[in-house]
């Protein structure tokens, strides 16, 4: 099966702890508003990194630059050794197959059923799969998030938490090496948030992917993060483990943890 082969190939080439994403001296502004200023960090295979920052601090802009939806003003972004801003559309399509992106608003297609939503990336990327293979991948992805019974429902028939799970299933369907989560628990009640956090941890264990999680939910940060990056005023203000950052006396960092 095509996907399995891709997964096997990436498993062969990616070793635990190998650098999969490197962002160096990234600048991005909209008009006169500077959003990212000299932002640098790296992400390694098998690790969960949380980027923590206030609303409007440029977290989503960072993640959209990484996936190639926004072009940075300057700086470099390397994903699995490929420089994202320099890639052609076809090359970008190839690299995007190895990156999963869970959107803040889930971004499920309202006019399609859950099955069609999950099939969409399989059919649109340049992958040749038989209908039986597609069916199996959809079934597996939905079982991973515990929602196999919703396969013929539309997004409008699902609750907020279920929509998030289905969106996560769509993110996982190509078995990506890197998963980008844009505020995965925003707008969810505490119980559903906890379920989504558990799911993110399960996914991490099952797929051994590198995860970059954008969040300002401290529960999510505490439970998921191997490493935390503080995005303050467009800069990588501080970086470290949750337990280290919580002990700091810096007032800007303390404001998040109090």
């Amino acid at each position: 099966m095509g996907i399995t082969k891709n997964k096997e190939e990436s498993a062969r080439t990616l070793k635990q702890g190998e650098q999969v994403l490197m962002v160096r001296n990234l600048y991005k502004s909209f008009g006169n508003h500077k959003v990212l200023i000299d932002f640098s960090f790296s992400l390694h295979s098998g690790e969960n990194v949380v980027v923590l920052g206030k609303s409007g601090s440029g977290k989503s802009v960072l993640i959209k630059c990484i996936i190639g939806l926004l072009k940075p003003d300057s700086g470099s972004i390397e994903v699995l050794g490929e420089s994202i801003p320099e890639l052609s559309d076809d090359e970008l399509d190839q690299i995007r197959m190895k990156i999963g992106f869970l959107f803040q608003s889930n971004a499920l297609y309202d006019s399609l059923t859950v099955r069609q939503n999950l099939e969409f990336p399989l059919r649109r990327h340049s992958i040749r799969l038989t209908q039986a293979e597609v069916d199996q991948l959809v079934k597996d992805a939905l079982e991973d998030v515990g929602l196999a019974y919703t396969i013929n429902m539309t997004p409008a028939e699902l609750s907020g938490g279920m929509r998030k799970r289905v969106a996560l299933a769509r993110t996982l369907i190509l078995k990506p090496s890197i998963i980008l989560y844009d505020e995965p628990t925003t707008g969810l009640d505490p119980i559903t948030s906890k379920e989504i956090i558990e799911l993110i941890k399960d996914v991490q264990q099952k797929y051994q992917a590198a995860s970059l999680i954008i969040s300002h939910d401290m529960n999510c940060v505490r439970m998921v993060a191997d490493r935390v990056i503080m995005l303050i005023e467009g800069r990588n203000y501080a970086e470290g483990k949750y337990d280290e950052l919580i002990k700091t006396n810096d007032p800007l960092i303390k404001a998040f943890f109090e």
């Binding site: 990156i99 889930n106 649109r124």
Partner: peptide, 16 residues
């Protein structure tokens, strides 16, 4: 509505 709910971005990420 597709624009404000990021469905257009999701489409681009999905190789479309």
């Amino acid at each position: 509505s597709m624009k404000v709910t990021e469905q257009i971005d999701a489409m681009e990420v999905s190789g479309t």
